[in-house]
């Protein structure tokens, strides 16, 4: 499979100060990658580089495919006067010249994207009235309608109930099956073990590769330090107590 995103010796940070070093990995079509690491470990910084919003301090980054991010929905305003379809249509803005309003083709594409995420029947619903899982899927549809090949998701399962989580995981598997590449920042080790590959970050790249080979006790200890606990014989990460705004 072809690489949709690739970094080599990537160093990134803010105001010339590196917060993430030596990241070399490849994201291929159809691949689901779990990005693990403590808060401040560099997950969000890596995503900003992949989106082209942060220039690397050193090393290279190649993104031959279009990359889109799926934001956490708690950052949007739930009392805002938009429908699910309106939110998906926002994803078509970049494809038009600045003076052009949404065309019929844009609306058709937006409806198709909603269908793709299983929400065709909720197109007219007010965004804020949807459940957390549905809002997450509307955001994925927004990324899809902009023709994104690579989807970056920042802890999308936080706050979802079990059925919503299962639905979202099935959708991501379905999208990967259709050739999209998915990178997902998460603290859920059990989920990461089920995915195609993992990338462990803690200010630098600790490890990357297949979960079964990479997720050893030693790697996890170096990734998470003291935040790691043993639950029923399995390693798990302590639930984070933080607000995402300060997460680098």
């Amino acid at each position: 499979m072809t690489a949709l995103a690739r970094t080599d010796g990537l160093v990134a940070g803010y105001d010339g100060v590196a917060v993430l070093r030596d990241v070399s990995f490849e994201l291929r079509a159809g691949e689901r990658l779990a990005v693990l690491g403590p808060n401040g470990g560099g997950k969000t910084t890596l995503f900003r580089v992949l989106l082209g919003r942060l220039t690397p301090l050193a090393g290279t980054v190649e993104t031959p495919a279009s990359v889109a991010t799926v934001p956490q929905t708690d950052r949007s305003r739930l009392d805002y006067p938009v429908s699910a379809l309106d939110v998906v249509l926002m994803g078509t803005i970049a494809s038009r010249p600045w003076w052009q309003r949404p065309r019929r083709a844009d609306r058709v594409a937006a409806r198709r994207a909603l269908e793709r995420v299983g929400l065709a029947d909720r197109a007219g619903a007010t965004f804020g009235e949807l459940s957390g899982g549905q809002r997450q899927r509307v955001r994925i549809a927004q990324a899809l309608v902009g023709d994104a090949q690579v989807l970056l998701l920042d802890e999308p399962f936080v706050g979802l109930d079990a059925p919503s989580s299962a639905q979202l995981e099935a959708l991501l598997a379905d999208l990967a099956g259709a050739g999209h590449a998915i990178a997902l920042a998460t603290h859920d080790l059990a989920q990461a073990r089920r995915w195609d590959s993992v990338l462990c970050l803690n200010g630098e790249q600790i490890a990357s590769g297949r979960p079964a080979e990479v997720l050893t006790e030693d790697v996890l200890a170096r990734t998470y330090g003291g935040e790691l606990v043993r639950l029923h014989g399995d390693l798990a990460v302590l639930p984070p107590h933080h607000h995402h705004d300060h997460d680098h």
Binding site: P71, R75, Y80, M90
Partner: peptide
């Protein structure tokens, strides 16, 4: 009217995810 799509998107969540 011309700026409406962008106005709507930026008012919604700042528009950063859409660049």
């Amino acid at each position: 009217a011309v700026a409406q799509p962008r106005l709507l998107a930026v008012g919604f969540d700042g528009g950063a995810t859409l660049g």
